[in-house]
Every structure is written in C-alpha cells, then in structure tokens.
Amino acid sequence: MHIFLMLLINGLAEGALIFLMAAGLSIILGLLGVVNFTHGVLFIWGGYVSIWIFSMTGSFPIAIIAAVAAGFIMGLIFERLFIRPVYGNVTAQILITLGLGVVFTDMARLFWGPNPIPASRPEFMDGTWVIGAVIISQYRIFLIIIGILVAIAINYLVNRTKVGMVMRAGIQSPDMVQALGINIKVYFAGVFAGGAALAALGGALYVPLVGSVWSGMGINNQILAFIVIILGGMGSFYGSAVGSIIIGLTVAFVSWFYPPLTVYTTVLLLLLVLTLKPEGLFGMAVRN
C-alpha cells in the first residue's frame, strides 16, 4: 500500500512537469496552429539558466524567475523571427522548429559544456515527511502544487479574461477576430512566449528533481508532452491536463517495476488511444 501511495505521488509530480510542457504546446497548437518542436530546447534552457543563476545568487526563487524570463524572451524571438514567416505551413514549421532545436541545444553545450552539471534541491525543500511507512519527498509535493496552480491560472486566463476570450475565438477563426478590430498577432506572440516560459519553468523545476542538467534531457520530455497532447486531443487544454496525469502515473508505475519498459509503455498507450479514439480523449480543438 505504501508503495502505491509513493508511486502515486511520484506519478503526479512527473505529470505536473509534463503538464508544464504539454499545456503550452497544446495551446500553441490550438490557437496558432503551430507544431512547436522548440519546446524541448526551451525546457533545456530553463534548466541551464536556473542552475546558472542559482550558482550566482544562491536563491531558488530568483533562479526560477530567471529561467521563466529567459524562456519568455526566447519565445518572443522565436515567434517573431522564425514562426511568423511560416504560419499556415505545418511542414515548414516542423522543419524550422526542429532546426532551431538543434541550434539551441548545441548552443547550450557551447555555453555550459557537454557534460551534465549537478544541481541541488533548494534546502528548504530537500526534506521528507514520514507518515507511517511512507516516505514523501517534499519537493514532489511542491511540484504537484505548482502543477495545480498553473492549471488553475491557465483555466482562469482562458475562461474568465478578455485574453482568454480572444484565444478561444482565435482557435476557431483568427481572420474573424481580426475583422472585429483585434490585432491577433499580438496575442499569437504572447501565447507563444507564454508557452515557452512554461516549458522553461518545467525545465527549471525538473533539474532539482533528477539532480543534474544535461543537453539531452529535452527530447524525452518533449516526446512525452507530444504523447500527452495526442492522447488528450490536440489543442484541448483539459485533455492535456488529464493526459499529463495519465502519462505521469504510467511512467512512475512502470519505471518502478521494470524501467526499460517505460518508453514502450507510453508509446503503446499512444497507439492504443489512436486506434480506439483517434481524436483523443477530449476531442480535438484544432481547426483543420
């Protein structure tokens, strides 16, 4: 029983991290119609920037904020220079964002070296709680709370604000939004940068969990996030939340019992959903 509880918490924490990636990817896909393969590299940069700033300031909150800011700025630059010329051209988007991924992964190696850099958890969260036979890592609980807070914040943004209104309308028809006097490109840039910032946040929070940062950590998480958004239904925010939890729990449980099977299981899950429910668990919110 205590193993089950521990794995549940591990899984939810993992799910929270995947969600930070998947939420941004999904909204970018839904609103901008852009497949973004730079998410993995933003995740890496979030990780590197956070430990870099942490080593200089010694402050965990400042490190996190710096990572988020770096992600946001990179997002703005990517959107302006590379994404904007290829709106509406999926193939070019895939190719360009993959290329950017290669460039910025290598740039991270150039700045911070090819070897993994060890990172430590902030002291105030390195502790554990022991309840009976169950040992609970405080950092994982912290991750779960962050995940929930981000989900609530996005939900509020989408359903209760003017920005969210434009986003929901823009998913259906960006042209019509423009024809109502709204410059949707500003929203596009903001959403892209916001998604990028979330990915960087994910990277910054992932590093203390696994204890080091290395340039190869992006691709695996990006693939998990992609699996999540196909699983949940492309462009569906709720789908990405539920999908993240499913994948997080799957990863936690399978990797506890037999780690080598983890990748196969997640992909198998994806193929199963595609076979049984091709539009994803929550239906697609993407215009064709």
């Binding site: 896909l29 497949v35 693939i223 699996i227 196909i230 992909v267 994806l270 076979t275 993407v286 064709n288």
Partner: peptide, 27 residues
Amino acid sequence: FAFRGSGFTGVIACAMITLAFGEIGRH
C-alpha cells in the same frame, strides 16, 4: 498508425507518431 489522419492534424499526428517510433528504436 502514422497515416490515419488527414489534413492539418494528420500531418501533426504523423510527425509525432513517427518521432515516437524512432525513439523506440533508439531506446
């Protein structure tokens, strides 16, 4: 699996599924 969909979402699903297959190979 990769060619199930069509149009915009089909292209995306195809890219992601083939990516997942490739990763299985590498893994």
